[in-house]
Simulated scan of single mutants.
Amino acid sequence: MARHYIAVENSGMVGEQDVGKFGTYGAAWAYIEKAYTETERDHTSPKCLFPDVCLEEDGMRTYDI
């Protein structure tokens, strides 16, 4: 059973894009915090890139983790 935590830009939107695959949830969030500014992570900002982490297990994805 393959399990990956994937950092995603524009999560849940048209144009969603994977930006990294990690072995743990913490590693995926650490990447997001390093790669994206606070403004790019702020959902109220017009410059937000909506980064998030999803869990992919056996080809199925969920953000409910």
Rank of each mutant, 00 (worst) to 15 (best):
T39Y: 02
Y36N: 04
K21R: 12
T62L: 00
D18N: 13
C54E: 07
D42W: 06
I32R: 10
E16M: 09
E40L: 03
G20V: 04
G59T: 06
R3P: 04
R41Q: 15
T62Q: 05
Q17K: 15
K47A: 15
V8A: 01
E33Y: 13
P51E: 02
Q17G: 04
L49N: 10
Y36M: 05
I6M: 07
G20Y: 10
S45Q: 09
D64A: 01
Y25G: 00
R61C: 06
A27T: 03
I32Q: 08
N10W: 13
R61E: 09
K47S: 09
C48D: 06
P46M: 13
V19A: 02
D52A: 14
P46L: 08
E33I: 00
L49P: 02
A7I: 13
C48I: 08
M60D: 09
E38N: 02
K21L: 02
T24E: 10
P51F: 11
H4D: 12
H4S: 12
S11L: 03
F22G: 08
V53D: 00
L49E: 11
N10V: 04
E33K: 13
M13S: 09
V14Q: 07
T24W: 08
K21Y: 10
T44W: 01
Y36G: 01
M60I: 03
E16S: 13
Y36V: 06
T24R: 10
G15D: 07
R61V: 10
Q17H: 12
L49V: 03
P46A: 11
Y5P: 01
D18S: 07
N10H: 12
P51H: 07
D58E: 15
K47W: 07
V19L: 13
G59E: 12
E9C: 05
E16N: 04
T44H: 13
D42G: 10
K34E: 12
A30L: 02
H43W: 04
A35L: 02
D52C: 11
A2E: 13
R41K: 13
D52Q: 03
R61I: 07
I6L: 13
T62V: 11
T37I: 00
Y36W: 10
V53G: 03
G15E: 15
M60L: 08
E33P: 00
A28V: 06
K21A: 10
T62R: 02
H4Y: 05
Y63D: 01
G12R: 07
K34D: 14
G26V: 14
W29E: 08
C54K: 13
Y5W: 15
D64R: 03
G59C: 07
D18W: 07
Q17W: 06
C54I: 14
M60G: 00
R61H: 00
D42R: 04
A2R: 10
A35C: 09
K21T: 14
V53A: 07
V53I: 02
G59Y: 10
E16P: 02
E9W: 03
